[in-house]
């Protein structure tokens, strides 16, 4: 919970981008698409967890429910 989260997501994004270019250059477009999807799912898992934490915090602070 903190800045390292942003760095982790950025690192995954850059890694996926580089891998994607690498695979496309070497002619394996399908695997490039696979790695893109895999990277997206990993980042999505992290983001969904963080958003859940945010919504719970907002609910407790503003006594929304």
């Amino acid at each position: 919970m903190g800045v390292d989260l942003i760095f982790r997501i950025a690192a995954i994004g850059i890694l996926v981008a580089v891998l994607n270019q690498l695979l496309i250059r070497s002619g394996r477009e399908e695997q490039a698409m696979m790695t893109t999807l895999a990277g997206l799912i990993v980042v999505l898992m992290i983001v969904v967890k963080e958003i859940a934490v945010l919504f719970d915090t907002v609910k407790t602070i503003f006594k929304l429910d």
């Binding site: 989260l5 942003i6 997501i9 950025a10 994004g13 990277g39 980042v43 992290i46 983001v47 963080e50």
Partner: peptide, 17 residues
Amino acid sequence: KQRPEIAVQASIVTGVV
């Protein structure tokens, strides 16, 4: 440029942090 979908998620996480 390369991965706009991950960029949006990074901005969401920044807002949360």
